[in-house]
Simulated assay, not measured.
Amino acid sequence: MKKTLSLLFALTGWFAIITQYFLMIRNSEFSFWETTIRFFSYFTILTNIIVTVYFTVQTFKKSSNEKSGILTAITVYISIVGLIYQFLLRSTWNPSGMQKLVDELLHSVIPLLVLIYWYWYENKNNLKYGSILKWAIYPVLYLGYILIRGSFSGFYPYPFVDVASFGLTNVLINSLWITAFFFILSLVFIKIGKLTGKS
C-alpha cells in the first residue's frame, strides 16, 4: 500500500510540476532562460519538486527504513506552501482551465496528500525538537536567494517579499513572521507526532 501511494503521489507531483512549467513557458513574455529561472524561483515549485522526488524514491527503494524526521520536514515545507497560498495568495489571481487544475494540485491537493502520508507512515516516536534548526536551512537559503537575485533582476516571486514595493525593512519583518510560523508549525508537527506515535 505504501509503495502504491508513493507511486500515485509521485505521478501526481510530476504531472503538476511539468504541466506548470509548460504553461509558464507558453504564456511568458520573457526569454526561455529567464522564464525557467523564474519558474525555479518559486518556493511552491521547489518544495513540490522535493515532495515529488521523495515519493519517487519511496516508490523504488527496497528498504522501508528511513531516518525519522525527513518526512516531517518535507510535510512542514509543503504545509507552509498550502497555508500561505490559501490565506495570503489565493485571492490575488483567478486561474482557469488547466492552470486552475495545476494550481489546485500544487497548493491544495499535494499538501493534503503529504499530510495524510505523514500521519500514516512517519516514524513519529523518534522526532526531535533539535532537528528544527536543520529543517530551517532550506527556507533560509531560499529567502537569501530570492532577495539577492531580486536586488539585481527586480523579480520577487511573492508580493510579501517584494523589496521594490515594500522596502527591505518591511520585507525582513514579513520574513521574520514567516520564519516564526515555520518554527511554530514544526513544533506542532513534532508534538502531534510524539502524541500519536506512542504505542
Rank of each mutant, 00 (worst) to 15 (best):
K2A: 13
K3D: 06
K3Y: 08
T4G: 14
T4A: 08
T4K: 07
S6R: 04
L8D: 00
A10T: 02
L11G: 08
T12E: 14
G13N: 11
F15G: 06
F15K: 07
I17P: 01
T19F: 02
T19V: 08
Q20W: 07
Y21F: 13
I25M: 15
I25E: 15
R26H: 13
N27T: 15
N27C: 08
S31D: 14
S31P: 04
F32H: 10
F32W: 13
F32N: 12
E34Y: 00
T35D: 08
T36V: 06
R38N: 14
R38L: 04
R38E: 07
F39Y: 15
F39I: 04
F40C: 00
S41Q: 11
T44F: 03
I45K: 04
I50S: 09
V51R: 03
V53N: 06
F55K: 09
F55P: 01
T56K: 06
T56F: 01
T56I: 04
V57Q: 06
V57C: 09
T59F: 13
F60I: 12
F60P: 03
S63T: 07
E66V: 03
E66P: 00
S68R: 02
I70F: 06
A73C: 09
I74K: 03
I74R: 04
I74V: 12
V76R: 02
Y77L: 09
Y77A: 09
V81E: 12
G82F: 08
G82Y: 05
Y85C: 05
Y85N: 01
L89W: 03
L89M: 07
R90C: 11
P95R: 12
S96N: 10
L105M: 07
V109K: 09
P111W: 14
Y117G: 00
W118A: 06
W118P: 02
Y119N: 07
W120E: 02
Y121V: 02
E122Y: 05
E122D: 01
N123H: 01
K124P: 02
K124S: 08
L127I: 05
L127T: 12
K128E: 10
Y129G: 15
G130D: 07
G130W: 03
I132L: 05
I137D: 03
Y138I: 10
Y142N: 03
L143S: 10
L147P: 02
R149Q: 09
R149P: 04
G154P: 05
Y156D: 06
P157I: 08
Y158P: 00
P159A: 07
F160R: 03
F160Y: 11
A164H: 11
S165Q: 15
G167D: 06
T169W: 12
N170A: 14
V171F: 07
I173F: 12
L176S: 11
I178N: 06
T179L: 14
T179K: 09
F182D: 06
L185V: 08
L185S: 14
V188A: 15
F189I: 04
K191L: 11
K191N: 11
I192D: 14
G193V: 09
K194Y: 12
K194F: 12
L195Y: 13
G197M: 01
K198W: 14
